[in-house]
Design a protein around this nucleic acid. Sequence first.
DNA 1: CCTACTTTGTGAATGAATTCACAAGCCTGC
DNA 2: GCAGGCTTGTGAATTCATTCACAAAGTAGG
Lengths: 216, 216
Amino acid sequence: MNSQACSAVKRIADSTVRRLSVYLRFLEGSTSRGQSTISSEELAKHGGTTSAQVRKDLSFFGSFGKRGLGYAVPELTESLREILGLQRQWNVVIVGAGKIGTALAQYHGFKSRGFNVVAVYDTDARKIGSKWEGHVVRDVASITSDLGERPAEIAVLAVPADVAQAAVDRLVSAGIRAILNFAPVQLQVPGDVALRSVNMAMELESLSFELTNRDR
Amino acid sequence: MNSQACSAVKRIADSTVRRLSVYLRFLEGSTSRGQSTISSEELAKHGGTTSAQVRKDLSFFGSFGKRGLGYAVPELTESLREILGLQRQWNVVIVGAGKIGTALAQYHGFKSRGFNVVAVYDTDARKIGSKWEGHVVRDVASITSDLGERPAEIAVLAVPADVAQAAVDRLVSAGIRAILNFAPVQLQVPGDVALRSVNMAMELESLSFELTNRDR
DNA sequence: CCTACTTTGTGAATGAATTCACAAGCCTGC
DNA sequence: GCAGGCTTGTGAATTCATTCACAAAGTAGG
């Protein structure tokens, strides 16, 4: 009945949220392709899932479609943005100015989606002060005072595994509320800090497993 | 009874495999720290799970521990490697010599874990022929013939979203068996090709959702 | 206005993954 | 070699996620 994105009453599964993100990405393409309406079936086909799953995912947040017709692309796009909290800007700091860190700092997808990179940090004295894509690399030691002046909600962690936990502890005490971790370690964070990890080694090993144990 | 990694009889969940990978990474650290034996409890603590989960995960593949004592670190490490198919070398090609692609090509974790980067590809004429970390960037058009001469099992895809599917189709027809995708699109692959996707936009949006809808 | 056709939204049913709980096995000390 | 203390391995119970299936609601055409 309600086409407003109401605040979640029951716990929403992470898998659901990730699919919403996939739907949104496809919808943004649909808009530019000039499609004005879309069915759960079509959304499912391009999101690698089933139409029932699409409808169930959306149903957790309200009722966005018209029976017999499908979903209006602009309205659904807007609703998904609202659900995912993308109608505001988020300030992001990148910690670690190595290969991955600098690649990320230049990643176009940040800015275009409301994630502002406000600072890049490193511990290497040779890197501190140098400039990348408009960001001066700053000393990790100044994170706490910097965040006091100019708060950021999200940190992207791209440092070696052996210093990752120390960096996390520093970020957490400086008031960071979410961390996207690229270091191949399991990090400990307080319950009120959100954490996601991208672990290339894990993905490769999972592929290795699948290639090895393919049912045959 | 059997401490051999027997071939999987029932389908193993992806979540299980990913945890095995986490256990393995911690064990490799334990070895260097000189610890000779480890309990499921300790493994769980550092893997962000529970001891029952650890034991259940391992039980799918055999029986590796000693009751009352725990798991012998070197033996379990070896068994996990075997389970994950890491006792052999895998040849990897990287497609896309942009920011992410080059960062990945230089990623130390590849070589040290048995994943040999055998080639880097791009379509940009200005990049083709240039050299990065011992790899000459080659023309995507030569993938098929290259793979005929020197096969690779795994491709890492780091190209823009709009050309990703075309690259996948080419790789699949050239005989690639597994793809690790960094492009923010849902890719279509035949059932016998393994696919994992790392999607930064999705991770950030999932954090955004969590920050926005924190139960409060 | 009525019929035929679509597609959503959602309880109920199924299936999958995690947690519980405890018997079985191993080590240590006496 | 026996008692006491740990820790594994695993069915059973539970929790969580996906799929099914269909009533409800919309469109279109006559």
